[in-house]
C-alpha cells in the first residue's frame, strides 16, 4: 500500500470514528430529560406555544432527520442557537476557543520546555542525583491535581505576592500583555502534570536509545558524550514522547475545563460546564463533539509527526 493511500484510509477511519462518536453524543443528549422548548419558555407556558416553538426549532422531526441536519450543520458551520443566550452556538464556541486554544498550546509548550531537558538529563545518567530529582518531580507532578496547583498558585503568587491576576480574562482586545499575564498561571497549572508524564517517558526513551549501536558509532566518530546524546540519542527517543503527547490530549482538555474553572477564564470548558448547569443541551452537545474532533485531529497530527521523526515510516518498501 502506498503511504498516501494509507494516510487516506487512516483519515477515513477517523472520520468513521467521528460519525459514531457524534451519533453517540446525539443519542445521549436526546435521552436527557428536559424538553428544550419547555426550558426556553418556562414551566408556565401554554402547551400550544411550546408545540409551536418545537416546530420552529425543528424538534418535531424524526430523530434521524434531526441528527442528519445537525451533522450537516457541523460541516456548514450552522450549529443552531443557544437555548439560553439565543446566540449562534458556533459563535459562542469560537469566542471561547480564543481562550482555550492559546491556553492549552501555551501549557503544552511549557510542558515540553520543562520535560525535554529534564527527561534527557535524567535519562543520560540513570541513577545519578539528577535522575533522582527528575523522578521525584515526575512522581509528584503526576499525582498532584492541576486544579489544586492552580489554587496554590493563586494563594502564593496572586494573593501572596501579587505578581499575577488571580483569575478572569481581560480579552485579547485589552492588549497582549494583559491577556498573556492572565494565562500564565493557568498554563503553569495545566503544564505541570503534563510535564511530569512527559519527563517520565523522555527519560525511559533516552535510556533505551542510549544503548543502541548507532550511538556508539557516533561516539566512535569522535562526538563527545553530549553531542552524541543530543544529535543521535534524543532525535531517536522523541517517537514515544510524541506518542505520549498525543495520548495526553484528553487529559489536557479535561484539565482545561478544571483550570478554567479555577481561574474563571471564559474558555470552552467553562462554557460546557455552564451550559450543563443551565441545561443548554444544544451547547453541551456541540461542545462535546468539538472536544472529540480536537482529540481525533490531534491524533492525526501525531501520526503525521511520526513520519517526520522516523524516516522508516515515511517511505514504503
Amino acid at each position: 500500500m502506498t503511504p498516501a493511500l494509507k494516510h487516506m484510509r487512516r483519515a477515513a477511519g477517523y472520520l468513521a470514528i467521528l460519525l459514531v462518536t457524534s451519533f453517540l453524543i446525539f443519542v445521549l443528549i436526546e435521552a436527557a430529560p428536559g424538553d428544550p422548548a419547555e426550558i426556553m419558555l418556562g414551566t408556565s407556558a401554554q402547551l400550544d406555544t411550546v408545540a409551536a416553538l418545537r416546530a420552529e426549532l425543528g424538534l418535531d422531526r424524526p430523530m434521524l432527520v434531526r441528527y442528519a441536519s445537525w451533522i450537516g450543520g457541523v460541516f456548514t458551520g450552522d450549529l443552531g442557537a443557544s437555548y439560553t443566550y439565543g446566540t449562534p452556538v458556533g459563535e459562542l464556541i469560537a469566542d471561547r476557543l480564543a481562550v482555550t486554544v492559546p491556553l492549552t498550546l501555551f501549557a503544552t509548550f511549557l510542558a515540553i520546555c520543562i520535560s525535554l531537558p529534564l527527561g534527557v538529563w535524567a535519562g543520560a545518567r540513570p541513577g545519578a542525583v539528577t535522575d533522582g530529582l527528575a523522578t521525584i518531580f515526575a512522581q509528584f507532578g503526576i499525582a498532584v491535581p492541576n486544579f489544586w496547583i492552580g489554587l496554590l498558585l493563586i494563594l502564593f503568587l496572586s494573593l501572596g505576592l501579587g505578581w499575577f491576576p488571580a483569575g478572569g480574562f481581560p480579552g485579547w482586545g485589552e492588549g497582549l500583555g494583559k491577556a498573556v499575564s492572565a494565562l500564565i498561571l493557568p498554563a503553569i497549572a495545566l503544564a505541570i502534570p503534563q510535564a511530569a508524564v512527559l519527563t517520565r517517558v523522555t527519560r525511559a526513551a533516552v535510556i533505551e536509545v542510549a544503548h543502541e549501536d548507532f550511538v556508539r558509532t557516533a561516539r566512535a566518530k569522535g562526538l563527545g558524550r553530549n553531542r552524541a546524546l543530543w544529535l543521535h540519542t534524543v532525535p531517536n527517543a522523541l517517537l514515544p514522547v510524541v506518542t505520549m503527547l498525543g495520548l495526553q490530549i484528553p487529559f489536557l482538555i479535561s484539565g482545561a475545563v478544571l483550570v478554567e474553572n479555577v481561574f474563571t477564564l471564559p474558555g470552552i470548558g467553562t462554557l460546557a460546564y455552564q451550559a450543563l448547569s443551565q441545561r443548554d443541551l444544544i451547547v453541551v452537545q456541540n461542545v462535546v463533539l468539538m472536544f472529540a474532533i480536537i482529540v481525533i485531529v490531534v491524533n492525526l497530527i501525531v501520526d503525521g509527526l511520526y513520519a517526520i521523526l522516523d524516516p522508516r515510516l515515511r517511505t514504503h518498501k
Partner: peptide, 18 residues
C-alpha cells in the same frame, strides 16, 4: 478509539445531562 475521545470530565458532562 471512540471511548478514548471521552476523558472522564467530558463523559461526566454528557452523562450529567442525562
Amino acid at each position: 478509539s471512540v471511548l478514548f475521545a471521552f476523558p472522564p470530565i467530558l463523559s461526566a458532562i454528557l452523562l450529567g445531562a442525562l
